[in-house]
């Protein structure tokens, strides 16, 4: 079943992570920024699963998968909160452009 070496998965994961970072830096729509954060979390998940395949003991192999499930729960929680924040900001200011969110800027 091992079709390809583990390193391929990790390079793919690195690429996804890089795209996520790029999106967070250059995008101005907070919803898309959020999606890019999800992309980064998924890159981490892929890396977890790939690294888990390199472990010798069963416990360590399953641990990688358990981590992924925990990460998914955290992702679900942060989406619920984050989208709530975005909706609240939109109600307050009628825009969600992150460049205009500068009330706390010194």
């Amino acid at each position: 079943m091992d079709a390809v070496p583990i390193s391929w998965y990790l390079i793919l994961s690195a690429f996804m992570f890089a795209m996520g970072v790029t999106g967070v830096v250059i995008k101005r729509n907070p919803i898309v920024i959020f999606m890019c954060i999800e992309l980064m979390l998924n890159a981490a998940n892929l890396a977890f699963l790939a690294f888990a395949r390199q472990q010798a003991q069963l416990g360590a192999q399953v641990a990688g998968q358990v981590y992924v499930i925990l990460v998914m729960a955290v992702a679900a929680a942060d989406v619920a909160i984050g989208l709530g924040i975005i909706v609240a900001i939109y109600r307050l200011r009628d825009t969600i452009n992150v460049d205009e969110m500068n009330l706390l800027k010194f």
Binding site: D2, P5, I6, S7, I11, A14, A18, Q54
Partner: peptide
């Protein structure tokens, strides 16, 4: 990506 890919290719072991 290039730096990470380089690192990954140099250091990594095989699947168990």
């Amino acid at each position: 990506v290039i730096v990470l890919a380089g690192g990954i290719f140099v250091r990594l072991g095989e699947a168990q």
